[in-house]
Design a protein around this nucleic acid. Structure first.
Lengths: 223, 223
DNA sequence: CACCGCCGCATTTGATCATATCCTGAAACG
DNA sequence: CGTTTCAGGATATGATCAAATGCGGCGGTG
């Protein structure tokens, strides 16, 4: 009975490079890797407790997604956002993400909306207590559990790419200015979801993104 | 002169996985790899005459870019476009690419415009003679030499991702219906460039993309 | 007796590792 | 001040291990 040629439901052994990729990605989005910081293969083999090949693959994948930058001399580092790059990100995010939200709203179930409301409650708490890590993590989860429900994998992968490029800078902003004026238009978004109002939801998401971009824009200009 | 690496013409570094990546990408965009076709590492080590590691890396990079698809069973193949995926591509391409063109038009030099006109002449010739490979290759070159000039690397990488997903299906359409009603709004585009009219250029590019999408949409619906 | 479906083995393919080679940047030296 | 040497790190190879697909044999049934 070892042969289970069924639909392949559970207990797939997760490949090591997959785990390494996720851990490294989280380090970039929520962890301690800051823009400009160099990333080496051998440095990660020890901290991530993985072999050289998986680490290498994870790094290459993140390079392909723009989360890491490969300099001409084979050095890898977390890229720093310039003002011009930020404007590109702003345009792309303001186009892609509201669209995902609008698609998702159509098939939204009540249980999914309340799950999003629960995440938002955690976000509010994180903002109050100034817990940057929790804010970043749950803000990410709020957006992407919503986007996931759109069932649009191509647009979803584009959105993920854009967050990977944006995340580190947002984290720097948080660390510098605290969590007080971080984007949180989630109440409006939830209201629009309950009304199944795609246009209003798109508008709320757009405003949320715009606030985040504005924070980073400010931080860039005053340096 | 201890460095006796004379295999290439340039004495610069010649990263093998880079070469392998480009060759494999061209096989997907312009070559003989059709949607649904499986792709194996060992099959490519022989046809591309490269080691296992470079081939593996090239494949992983193309997976990250959406040009290849990794199934649950760790098998890799060229993804087939469904109608839903095509609509995602349509939205994203119609947003990103006209924007790139509009940005690029600002700094366009006359020499660059005439270079694009030269490429377009080759495209016209390819359409006349029914040379599918030349059409695909030069159509790609036309769009991306223009997009390159925008100096917007993030949007450019998004556009590249989208073409990698779209290319194979367009090639199938070409092979089935010939080159007769392929998109070619390049004359209008060139005219708009000469007038430095961003809006008109965006419109021409948008129409060009729309025609290509329409071809693939037709091919999908009648199967 | 012939046909059908299931189970286990073999081959193919992917994942990982240890190692060797090469490149880059910089310190050391004349 | 230019050249040489050296160390750290990245790239590439081949071997080895694990998983999956496909094939062939076995038993059951009509």
């Amino acid at each position: 009975m070892k042969n289970l040629r069924e639909t392949g439901e559970l207990h797939r052994k997760v490949p090591s490079h997959e785990v390494t990729y996720c851990r490294l990605r989280d380090m970039i989005l929520f962890g301690q890797l800051t823009p400009g910081q160099p990333v080496t293969i051998q440095g990660l083999t020890s901290t991530l407790e993985a072999g050289m090949t998986p680490v290498r693959e994870a790094i290459r994948k993140l390079i392909a997604e723009g989360a890491l930058e490969l300099r001409g001399n084979r050095r890898v580092l977390v890229p720093e956002l310039s003002a011009a790059r930020l404007e590109e990100l702003a345009f792309a995010r303001l186009t892609i993400e509201p669209r995902l939200a609008e698609i998702a709203v159509k098939g939204l179930k009540d249980s999914e909306i309340s799950a999003l409301a629960r995440i938002d409650a955690v976000i509010d708490q994180a903002i109050e207590t100034g817990d940057v890590h929790s804010y970043l993590l749950n803000n990410f989860r709020f957006h992407f559990t919503l986007y996931d429900l759109a069932g649009a994998p191509i647009l979803l992968s584009l959105a993920q790419m854009l967050w990977l490029r944006f995340g580190p800078s947002l984290r720097v902003v948080c660390g510098r200015y605290g969590t007080s004026n971080l984007p949180d238009r989630h109440e409006e978004a939830l209201e629009a979801m309950r009304a199944r109002d795609g246009a209003a939801l798109g508008q709320a998401i757009r405003e949320d993104i715009r606030q985040g971009i504005e924070q980073v824009r400010l931080a860039l200009s005053e340096r």
